[in-house]
Amino acid sequence: MNDTNLHGDDAPPSTWKQGEPLAASGIPERKGDSIVARAVTINRPVAEVFAYFRNFANLPTFMENVERIDTLDAMRSHWVVKAPAGKTVEWDAVITDDEVDRVIAWTSEPGAGVANSGRVEFRDAGARGTVVVATIAYDPPAGMVGKLIAKMFQREPAIQARRDLRRFKQLLETGEIATAAMNRKQHEEELS
């Protein structure tokens, strides 16, 4: 349990009705005035969930807007992410906290297309598996207008965090991500 959680539950700090959720977010060197946090319980052991997430090459498999992540060294990576209107934004990120099976925190380096920082916590939930709590602080490009445009195009981080965590859960629990869309093979079989 997070020591700063006065409520003794798995809720992310941004959902608290009492206390100082922004201060309790645990994000070092917080970059960004907007903060979003989401949590999901994944029915897998914490070591497996952490290991999959910590390999940044895996993140585009369930993060819908992440085009690619290039690992620059053990602590730095380069992110290319879809933005509204068919554009992309890029930044370099540095890991600020990395505790095996517990937490990964990062901050964007100066010059980022979207200044951001965040923290993902992994908590052993016993027979239920692992509770994953993702907290992200960011500055939307073009301020509030940019945030509104991102929301209209379903690219706003609060919307994406919820969807990405749901896909992460599906992928680790079932080995695939459920979708209403047909993949190419299904489409070809239907036409046959």
Rank of each mutant, 00 (worst) to 15 (best):
D73A: 09
V145N: 07
K17V: 13
A181Y: 09
R166W: 03
E109R: 08
D92T: 15
H78T: 07
A47H: 11
A37R: 06
F153G: 04
P13F: 04
I95R: 06
G175H: 07
Q186P: 08
K151P: 00
L72I: 15
E156H: 07
A24N: 05
L171H: 05
P60H: 10
V81Q: 04
L165I: 10
T107M: 09
R184D: 12
A150H: 02
S14L: 14
W91V: 12
Y138C: 06
V133D: 04
A37E: 07
V103D: 04
K17D: 01
N43V: 08
N183D: 15
E90D: 10
A112E: 00
S108M: 05
V100R: 13
T135G: 03
Q170P: 04
M75L: 13
T15C: 00
L22E: 05
T15Q: 12
W16D: 01
W16S: 06
F53N: 04
Q170N: 10
A180L: 12
M152F: 11
R102F: 06
K31I: 10
A83D: 03
P140I: 15
L172I: 13
V81H: 00
S108Q: 09
V133L: 05
E29N: 15
A39I: 06
L165A: 08
M182Y: 10
V131H: 01
R123P: 00
L191D: 04
N65H: 10
N55K: 13
D164V: 06
G175R: 11
D101G: 05
Y138H: 04
P12K: 12
R102G: 00
A137F: 04
R44F: 04
E29R: 14
E48D: 13
I69H: 00
D124N: 14
H7N: 13
G129R: 09
W79L: 07
I35R: 05
G175V: 13
T179R: 13
L148H: 03
M75P: 05
E20Y: 07
A24M: 02
T15D: 09
M1I: 11
D92P: 01
D10R: 12
N65D: 12
K31Y: 00
G126W: 11
W79I: 09
V49Y: 04
G129S: 13
R68D: 03
D9A: 11
A158W: 01
A178Y: 08
P110N: 13
S77C: 11
N65M: 09
A115P: 02
R30S: 06
M1P: 02
I104Q: 06
V89A: 00
R54S: 08
G113C: 09
H7C: 00
H7D: 06
G111T: 13
F50A: 05
K169R: 15
A11K: 11
S14D: 12
T130P: 06
G143E: 13
D92C: 10
S25H: 06
A11Q: 11
Y52K: 07
A161W: 00
T96M: 02
N55C: 01
D97F: 01
F50S: 00
E64C: 03
T4F: 00
D98A: 10
